[in-house]
Design a protein around this nucleic acid. Structure first.
Lengths: 190, 190
DNA sequence: AATTAGACTGAAATACAGAATTGGTCGAAT
DNA sequence: ATTCGACCAATTCTGTATTTCAGTCTAATT
């Protein structure tokens, strides 16, 4: 990517993290990135486009991080646990970074829905693959994979909310214990 | 309860279901209940008080409904399933009735938090009792009851969202299948 | 041709004053 | 004890004047 483009992205990201999307003006970004406002329109279609690019890059990195975490673990159970752990830690980090960004009015931007949808699919596919691998390896008992994925996804989402209140260890303990039950529910019995 | 008081509650409930809390004026309620506005202040401290009473009554009925459902079932698993089923159906009904009432600005009324908290406690206690009964009856394996309750609560909450979109049967099928996994996870093994 | 910038525009947000609405009170009537 | 109309203060609404800001245009620069 072009150096100027990177600078715009970096500056915009910085300001948006501080003030939110709406309150960050194109003039501010231009000033802080040391260039004329219209120069930015040479690289980006509009303001939303900058934001969309930031979100796109971040979510790519997120997905990569999750894939790395899975790769590093061995058993299907551990892969799933590492997925959840990584996901939680990243989301916590994110929520700290974008303190001012309240979800409510983010919903008004179409590409957020897009990213949300993409991530939903990614998560479903990833978990599906892991469960299927477990069945293949005779670790999990053959079952309706979609339902298991749904249950895990819901459990993860349920843990999302207290992300902003609870302590990190508690969350990890909770998710571990909850997953143990689910694993017991789908593991092949000796 | 006094007849007039009942009439105020009924009228207010009707109007609030139609227009929401904020848009329903005391004058309207008074007019529709065929009495002077200030007469209502003889029975209620203020507007919020009327609303609070409505919510209190409704949530009492809800709790009673749930207790009835539990009583009618026999096995611990069935009791839990019936609890979930009844809870879902009631919430669906509620959401149909109070179409205009969007949660967002209900949060601003303190007693909603109160009721939410009360219900949270009720749900926790109820599920705890059921799980403990299951352990007592040697149906569930002894385990950290709090974690199991947390998992079930989260799963239920996760099913809450699509309540407004999904079909009823799907929800029932989903919850049934998900609970089967959790039950398998905590049942005593033969 | 690719890039940059300053001036400009129209639409949307904001600020604000005056008017209307509405939750709640009071004293009189029953 | 209960009901009510008149009233009040505060909030909300409404229309308008002002400002802000995303995005464009054109000309200059590399």
């Amino acid at each position: 990517m072009n150096e100027k483009k990177k600078r715009i992205i970096a500056t915009a990201k910085e300001l948006i993290a501080l003030y939110g999307f709406k309150k960050t003006t194109m003039d501010e970004i231009a000033a802080k990135a040391r260039m004329g406002k219209s120069s930015m329109y040479y690289y980006f279609k509009n303001k939303e486009d900058i934001f969309a690019e930031i979100v796109r890059i971040d979510s790519d990195l997120f997905r990569q991080k999750l894939n790395d975490a899975i790769q590093k673990a061995y058993s299907p159970q551990d892969k799933i646990m590492q997925y959840i752990r990584t996901r939680m830690l990243h989301l916590k980090e994110l929520s700290n970074y974008y303190k001012t960004l309240t979800n409510e009015y983010l919903d008004h931007y179409f590409f957020i829905e897009q990213v949300r949808g993409d991530f939903y699919n990614f998560e479903n596919n990833t978990l599906s693959t892991l469960i299927n691998e477990g069945i293949q390896q005779n670790v999990f008992t053959p079952c309706d994979v979609d339902v298991v994925v749904h249950l895990i996804a819901i459990a993860i989402k349920g843990l999302e909310y207290p992300l902003f209140i609870q302590k990190e260890q508690d969350l990890e303990r909770d998710s571990k214990q909850m997953m143990e039950i689910i694993f017991k529910g789908i593991e092949v019995r000796a």
